[in-house]
Design a protein around this nucleic acid. Structure first.
Length: 829
RNA sequence: GCCGGUGUGGUGAAAUUGGUAUACACGCUAGUUUUAGGAACUAGUGCUUUCGGGCGUGGGGGUUCGAGUCCCUCCACCGGCACCA
């Protein structure tokens, strides 16, 4: 037979799959569905190893589930709007659309060379009007529902990208995309009320426990940042107004010795008027405003503050407390004002010491009593309340509840919760995105574009500004439009939507990608959703994965979708590493997938990527490792070739087959053990590296079997060999589908033969089992015994074993522990 | 600081329920074959040893007949959050 020629085999099968639309699926309520999805790529130019890893993991699972009889939907599309297209367009003097579609063409071909089982009829590109029309449609629904709203606020601005960024898109004070420093600016824009969904998003996190990586759930939980506490009113002296504070420690209220307002708090300026602090406050506020927010909110930043000149009343002690303002209090968390309890909060203590403010201990410590005058470490653990009137003695949660009850009764406060999560800013001052479908009219204000007027098309004849400014702002033919309501001349919104909008529901669109009258068909969506298994990088732990969960809840409320969560199971794959660093162009350590495919074939690339590390771990690229996998596939091909003639016409050994030849029994056992191991490794553990290792062992065994057979008089082994080869082909097929298809054809498989093989438990058993004999927990002997031997017989056998006797003679046997089918441990003294 | 994760041969890794530590692969060594290189095949490969054995899963301690696995503690590295009241 011919040598293994991956290029020939792979081209042949890829053409076959394409021509026959092998992986096209339709809704079929008689079949159990499985939705397998990988995070869709940004068409950046060419695919990289990270993509290959992502899609290989997904494809292996998709193929496995298909063989298991599921109706598997496995789509791919393009996250096609976004900045890089604009940057490339400016650099190469082309148009973002041209650049994007050219990249899609290139990457699509590359992806096809990997032999991935996609239903290409469901392909989408988010920059296509047929897709973004529905972005706009959804935006209008959000507007109607009050989820989308406009406000003027402090926003994150990236000067390099010339656009606003959402909080989730600021990483360490820098732009997530270009890594330039992010500035704060006052600007009006569109926001989504993700904060309204904070609690439901949090509850969802709990429901996903065990199905999503714990790390991702923890990150989302922290990002949402729910804290339980109380809102308390501190009456301003000589005024009817009160300052509202949020605290997580109402049990320390008796120790609140002063208050601190954020410099931006309206009361900061207001309270200082008419006091001697007036001008000092003005210059302090000005100074803090000039401070960079990132530096201001870093823990190492110097705490600076100043007295406002005003006093308020501690509602429980009735004492007058001075009201300060300081740079470390943030306007957008809680109420923008805090009560300071220096004895029980480190920041407050540092501040009190710096400005000589009083300290009072109101929580009893476990160890040494605190020294109010000299303490430098605040005591922030729970403890019994002291110096707190009738509350004395109450501890922790109970203390906090009792204080809240009292506050509520007196009408001066209440128990409340606070979130760290902020609303999602979605306006982008960019060109290559979804136009926001509203019109600004001098008479009518903000007017939504009619549903029948969608899509508001992105003009393709626009010229990008030199610095990347969006041409929409200056393109009259785009923005000049009559008001949809009063028909007077008006101006279209020229900002576009954050591209994360597109990726927040694309998985819904896949369920009916060509639907023309709605974003997707509810029946299709109800059948296919949720995504059963989502595969992607951890970098979207918060961004895309949180936004999508939020969208899904809104779509639930709009009665467009039913699934409670969009992604039932999530697998976050590790990075691809070479020479100790993530593969990247800037590090110059990239390996081109095309080159690997050309040299070794896609099957080798796939097997290596799955074999080198479990999916969740980082994967170290190794050319030698790739060669090892190539060698493995060549070994598979060769052993198959050696046996194919004998096996071609045979009926595989089945239930009723029996033989007394030890080697044949052993090969059958190996075959069935392999099926079991591979099945469980894929299905229960998603550990493809050990699944492939198991197949390697089967192949090694087949070589040994062949060697044995050649040294014997001819025997009829065809049914057993056939059974083994079938198992080999089928178990290897999710990993290396091309070689598997080729071998299946050479063995004349029929379609039903291609379903996932079952193992026979009885055949995985041996007649003889190996028992480990231990003395005091140390291995001293290994014994082969008959499988049916009783514990008693085994014990006697162990005790008279000469090797064991060497260790037990002259010693008292205290105990003998027998673990069935595994070991005997003799405890001596 | 808080939360989460990781730590096993020369290397990537395995050990699923507390039961033979290092499966599978890479590399290396020797051999067969080959004009050579390569490839393929065979054997060996944790450390140590007085050849009985002893030691060995980041360090220390504990529970147990038995610990890579459970508990305590410390160290190193990675990731996230962080003046969040």
């Amino acid at each position: 037979m011919n040598p293994y020629e991956p290029n020939y085999i792979e081209a042949k099968w890829q053409a076959y799959w394409e021509k026959n639309k092998t992986f096209k699926v339709e809704r079929d309520s008689s079949k159990k569905k499985f939705y397998l999805l990988e995070m869709f790529p940004y068409p950046s130019g060419r695919i990289h190893m990270g993509h290959v890893r992502n899609y290989t993991i997904g494809d292996t699972l998709a193929r496995f589930k298909r063989m298991k009889g599921f109706n598997v939907i496995h789509p791919l599309g393009w996250d096609a709007f976004g900045m890089p297209a604009e940057n490339a367009a400016i650099k190469n003097n082309t148009h973002p659309a041209e650049w994007t579609f050219e990249n899609i063409r290139t990457m699509r071909e590359q992806i096809k060379r990997l032999g991935l089982s996609y239903d290409w009829d469901r392909e989408i590109a988010t920059c296509h009007p047929g897709y973004y029309k529905w972005n706009q449609w959804l935006f209008l629904k959000f507007l109607e529902k009050g989820i989308a709203y406009r406000k003027n606020s402090t926003i994150n601005w990236c000067e390099a990208c010339q656009t606003v960024l959402a909080n989730e898109q600021v990483v360490d004070g820098c732009c997530w995309r270009c890594d330039n420093e992010v500035l704060q600016k006052q600007q009006e824009g569109w926001f989504f009320k993700i904060t309204d969904y904070a609690d439901r998003l949090l509850k969802g996190c709990k429901s996903l426990a065990g199905k999503w990586p714990e790390q991702v759930l923890t990150m989302q939980t922290n990002w949402i940042g729910k804290s339980y506490g109380a809102e308390v009113d501190f009456k301003i002296k000589d005024s009817d107004e009160a300052i509202k504070v949020f605290t997580t420690r109402p049990d320390t209220l008796y120790g609140a010795m002063f208050m601190v307002l954020a410099p931006e708090h309206p009361f900061t300026i207001k309270l200082s008027r008419g006091t001697e602090q007036e001008s000092a406050i003005d210059s302090f506020v000005k100074k803090v405003n000039l401070q960079d927010t990132i530096a201001r909110t870093s823990e190492t930043g110097e705490k600076e503050g100043i007295f406002t000149g005003a006093y308020a009343t501690n509602p429980l002690t009735g004492e007058s407390v001075p009201v300060w303002t300081a740079n470390f209090v943030l306007m957008d968390y809680g109420t923008g004002a805090i009560m300071s309890v220096p004895a029980h909060d480190q920041r407050d203590l540092d501040f009190a010491r710096k400005y000589n403010l009083p300290v009072r201990v109101v929580i009893e410590t476990k160890g040494e009593a605190l020294d109010e005058k000299n303490m430098t470490q605040a005591y922030n653990a729970d403890g019994a309340m002291i110096h707190s009137d009738s509350f004395d003695g109450l501890i922790g949660q109970e203390a906090r509840s009792k204080v809240c009850e009292y506050l509520e009764k007196e009408g001066i406060g209440k128990a409340t919760v606070n979130f760290r999560l902020r609303d999602w800013g979605v306006s982008r001052q960019r060109y290559w995105g979804t136009p926001i479908p509203v019109v600004h009219c001098d008479n009518c204000g903000i007017v939504p574009v009619g549903y029948d007027q969608l899509p508001v098309e992105l003009p393709l004849d626009a010229q990008l500004g030199e610095k990347g400014q969006s041409p929409l702002h200056t393109l009259e033919s785009f923005y000049k439009t009559p008001c949809p309501k009063c028909k007077a001349p008006a101006k279209r919104e020229t900002d576009t939507l954050d591209t994360f909008f597109c990726s927040s529901w694309y998985f819904d669109r896949y369920t009916s990608p060509r639907q023309e009258d709605k974003p997707f068909d509810p029946e299709d969506n109800g059948y296919w959703m949720p995504v059963d298994q989502y595969v992607g990088g951890i970098e979207h732990a918060i961004l895309h994965l949180l936004y999508s969960r939020f969208f899904n809840l809104v779509l639930n409320d709009l009665e467009l979708t039913k699934a409670k969560e969009p992604f039932d199971h999530l697998l976050t794959q590790g990075m691809v590493i070479k020479d100790g660093a993530k593969m990247s162009k800037s590090k110059g350590n990239v390996v081109d997938p095309d080159e690997i495919i050309k040299t070794y074939g896609a099957d080798t690339a796939r097997v290596f990527i799955l074999f080198a590390a479990p999916p969740v771990k980082d994967l170290e690229w190794s050319e030698q490792g790739v060669e090892g996998c190539y060698r493995f596939l060549k070994r598979v091909w060769r052993i198959f070739s050696d046996f194919v003639d004998e096996a071609k016409t045979a009926t595989p050994a089945g239930e009723n087959f029996s033989t007394s030849v030890k080697e044949l029994k052993e090969l059958r056992r190996m075959t069935h053990i392999t099926i079991r191991r591979v099945t469980e490794d894929i299905e229960k553990r998603m550990q493809f590296n050990t699944a492939i290792a198991a197949i390697m062992e089967l192949v090694n065994h087949l070589y040994h079997f062949k060697e044995w057979k050649e040294s014997q008089d001819p025997i009829d082994s065809a049914p057993v060999i056939r059974e083994s080869l079938e198992a080999l082909i089928l178990t290897v097929s999710p990993f290396a589908p091309h070689i598997a298809e080729e071998m299946a054809t050479l063995l004349n498989f029929s379609e039903p033969d291609k379903s996932w093989p079952l193992y026979n438990e009885a055949l995985t058993q041996t007649d003889e089992i190996l028992i480990v004999l231990q003395v005091n927990g140390k291995v001293r002997q290994k014994l082969k015994i008959e499988a049916g031997m009783s514990d008693e017989d085994l014990k006697s056998l162990a005790l008279i074993d000469p090797k064991i006797l060497e260790w037990t003679q002259d010693k008292e046997i205290k105990k003998v522990i027998i673990v069935p089918k595994k070991l005997v441990n003799i405890v001596v003294k």
